[in-house]
């Protein structure tokens, strides 16, 4: 039920301000402390959930993001593509408006790689280090952007989220098979990117981009990212190929 109430802001505001003042600063401080505690507990729960599959191979996406954070956390950083609910959004503290640049807006595949090169170009003169967690299927829509990055010396740190599939499609076809009472093990037909596996380091190197990988041992990610970051800090693109879990 909607009820129309006539009101006048000028008339109401003094009463509202007076009412808030009566609540006093002490209760506000208490509320702030309660919220801070709740936030810290939430962050602790997220860190605990990131431990699951920590040493798994293929590499867990939580591990990938935790490793990437180690090379970004002391920089003025930007993640060129970011999604709510992702490990980056959950694990990394964002304090600047340019930290997370959002996504395509239409769940489109093929957006991330060129968008990341564009973001890195825009950030280059601002001293912002640009990174991207680059899905393999997305890169294959326009792999030539790597040449663009090399040719124009655009410093972009690309970390492959290489699950060797159009993984969203794998899961979708499993769901559809379930709905239609069909076998689900056929969901990988036409949705995986394997046999042969694509060597993304070679793909990048062939276009003049420094690259390492594929990495399947999570212990090797950290050192590779540090080498890649050294290249990016020199003003050039770098790519590290990490073979990951599906999501």
């Amino acid at each position: 039920m909607d009820i129309s109430i006539s009101a006048d802001v000028q008339a109401t505001l003094p009463s509202l301000i007076e009412s808030i003042r009566k609540q006093g600063s002490s209760s506000r401080a208490g509320r702030t402390e309660a919220l801070r505690k709740e936030y810290q507990q939430m962050k602790a729960r997220i860190r605990e959930s990131a431990t699951l599959g920590w040493d798994a191979s293929p590499v867990s996406t939580a591990r990938l993001h935790a490793e990437l954070w180690q090379v970004l956390k002391n920089e003025n950083w930007c993640l060129a593509e970011s999604r709510s609910g992702s490990w980056a959004a959950r694990l990394w503290p964002a304090t600047q408006h340019h930290n997370f640049l959002g996504q395509s807006g239409g769940a489109g595949v093929g957006y991330i790689a060129p968008a990341a090169v564009g973001a890195a170009l825009a950030n280059k003169d601002k001293g912002i280090i640009t990174a991207v967690v680059q899905p393999d299927g997305d890169l294959m829509y326009a792999p030539g952007v790597l040449w663009t990055a090399a040719h124009h010396k655009i410093p972009l740190l690309s970390v492959m989220h290489n699950n060797r599939a159009y993984h969203q499609e794998v899961m979708h076809l499993q769901k559809m098979a379930g709905l239609h009472n069909r076998r689900m093990d056929t969901a990988r037909i036409g949705t995986t990117i394997e046999d042969p596996n694509i060597d993304y380091a070679k793909l990048a190197q062939a276009q003049g981009v420094w690259a390492e990988g594929p990495i399947t041992d999570p212990a090797k990610i950290g050192p590779a990212l540090q080498r890649a970051m050294a290249v990016v800090k020199k003003g050039e693109p770098a790519l590290v190929d990490i073979v990951t879990q599906g999501r």
Binding site: S49, G53, A56, A62, W87, V170, Q174, Q245, G246, R247
Partner: peptide, 12 residues
């Protein structure tokens, strides 16, 4: 594909 190879669950 949805639960991870060691049952850890998946992102998003």
């Amino acid at each position: 594909t949805c639960h991870g190879t060691v049952g850890q669950g998946a992102d998003r």
